[in-house]
Amino acid sequence: MAEVYVKNELSYKAKKTIFHILVYAFLILITISVLIPFYWMLLTSVKTQVMIEQVPPLLFLKPADWEINNYKLLFEVVQSGPRRGQPLFPFFTYMKNTILVSVITTVGTTITTILAAYAFARLRFKGSNLVFVILIATMMIPGEIFILTNFLTVYRLGWYDVFNQTYWDAVLAMTIPFMTSVFYMFYLRQTFKQIPNELYFAAKVDGTTDFQYLWKIMVPVAMPTIVTIIILNSMGAWNAYIWPNMIATRDEYRLVSNGLRGAFTDSSTGRTDFGQQMASAVLVTVPLLILFFVFRKQIMRGVSRSGIKG
């Protein structure tokens, strides 16, 4: 009997070890697949054109051989093309636009979201369920449908004028339509609902108005959720592509995503300068990654909740 057991035990432990090795191998394989595009982006951005066109491709490059000229060129003022008089890749202009749009949109969204979430979580009024259901239903509608009319609305509001659009016209057009979010409202309402009623009654006894109660008690208590909403929302502007492309009449009004594509292809030869293109991609990617690593917990928690909600 004892011998049988020893055999069993060995095979069991061996099996477990093999299983763990396989799992780790699988995860490492996925890790490599996830990281390769980032690696290739960075590697290409520090290669010279000659290195880029080398066959077979160079898979590694010693830091000593890194070519930072691609980055330098991005900031040099060009004399022709749509960006005449500007740097080849006006990174700082785009960043400024993106941050401005991001901040304005986020402030607006946060305010409308807090007010609406409070109404749905705390106040009783006729039709609240109906309105709530209608709002939730809009989450199912593809946003592309709205864009057609919103473009016309922005035009009628005078924010899209091909010849005379000012910077602030463009900023307004890029922010005002995006100052609401049903999903964040839903998310915050859930948090508000978890705040015990006793707190509300206690505040009433202390003579606070509803509005004071919201700002002095609800908002501070729900701060972690609000911070998550702020972070997730402000990342949106970094990925916005279609709308800013549509309503910004001048290159210097656009956001980072718009500046990336197309700018590095020589229109006469059709050849793309991949080194510069990847350098600009790195410039756009790095701030987001920094933001992510700083707020990793809030971001991942917020996103995983958004999936669980259904």
Partner: peptide, 11 residues
């Protein structure tokens, strides 16, 4: 998830 889709797409 947290990177710019256009930038990575170009990569």
């Amino acid at each position: 998830y947290v990177t710019n889709g256009i930038a990575v797409g170009m990569a």
